[in-house]
Amino acid sequence: MDMKIAGSGVLNGGEYDAISISGSAKITGDIRCAEFKCAGAVKANGDLHSTGDIRVSGSFSCDGTLIADGVLKVAGSCHTEQKIKGKEIRIAGALTTRGNITGEIIRSSGSIRTDGDVEGEEIVLTGGAKIGGTLNGEQVSLYPDGDGGIMQIPTIGGTTIEVQGKGPKSFFQKLFYGKKCNTLRAELIEGDTVKLQDTQCDIVRGTNITVGPNCKIRRIEYAETLTVDAESQVEEQAKL
């Protein structure tokens, strides 16, 4: 059964085909559906599982888990209290959760915040990010950018990790944030190929490491090659 809410309404938990909400709605109970679209303000107090896509272009908050077997697309704000899972996750707004975020492809050009881990095969984050746990990906590309442009990720691990601060630093950004703007702040980065720019990190470990400009790293441990730009500071380095 398809379900459409235009205006204001309450949707009870259960199984549906396509759900489309344009207005304000409250969802009570767990939902399983073939497709979910919302373009208003929606609050759910259970889990939402779509066997297809989930598209949020307004404000969506959920006390449970959010699972899309297809694409999870957020163009507004989306908050969940538990884990988020999608085959592909695309964020152009703000995604916040207290749980883990898992997807094959995770692309964010807005802001992403979680108390847990982020795991995916291809992870591309542009803008801001605050991750409480580990970011683990096959190909990880991070482009701190935007208002303040600070990414905070304690641990990053994967095969290829690339970091590059994006965009020019404006006068006001420099005034308020100094060298910290458009910068990644991490405690540990571990990967096979690691290319860093605009990064502050305690320990970087890897096989082939390239440190570009505007980096401040306490210790680097590498297995094969290490290149450090003259504009960056590396306190200790060790070849394993």
Binding site: N136, E138, G157, T159, E221
Partner: peptide, 20 residues
């Protein structure tokens, strides 16, 4: 972790992949 990678000749990428 370092000792484990050296002992088995595996990479950070493989270890993180297996964890994922």
């Amino acid at each position: 972790k370092k000792e484990l990678l050296q002992q088995y000749g595996i990479s950070y990428g493989a270890l993180y992949r297996w964890k994922r």
